[in-house]
Amino acid sequence: MYSVSRWSVRHARLFEILYSLFEPVLVRLNPVWSALGYQRVEKPVRLIEQLFKELLFDCRMCGDCILSSTGMSCSMSCPKHLRNGPCGGVRLNGNCEVQPERRCVWVDAWNGSRKMKRGDRILTIQKPMDARLQGHSSWLRQARRVGQRGRQTPGRTQ
């Protein structure tokens, strides 16, 4: 949903707030996820996550979500899957080199990040992706990671 995802980037701050409320719930439910078994809940949670994120962010279910660090603009919809900023091919009108009719994901990301409180996370270097996570739930991964650490740390997923 291209137009919706562009709307979401324009309201990056709203989604930052929503996620900051949602993530602690997700993490607090860690004992529940553990009791049920992460593998068993993976499928239903993934479906819900996909439904929301596909609609709102044009999500590609990479399984390693960094929306909070990219101004709520999904870097996986970049044809080059760039996770560390725009390439040098961005057109003068701010559109993509590969898909000239679409806005560069990173032009949007930069604008979105300027609206967010913790938008400077766009400046952190992202490690190469783990291709095995493709199609898995980022939410559960985050819940597990933070939950098992036993304390609340700033999340990077949305």
Binding site: G85, P86, V90, R91, L92, W110
Partner: peptide, 14 residues
């Protein structure tokens, strides 16, 4: 010379 111009120096810093 490519947008977003104000991000380019930060990208170089990265």
């Amino acid at each position: 010379f490519a947008p977003p111009y104000d991000y380019r120096p930060y990208r170089l810093a990265k």
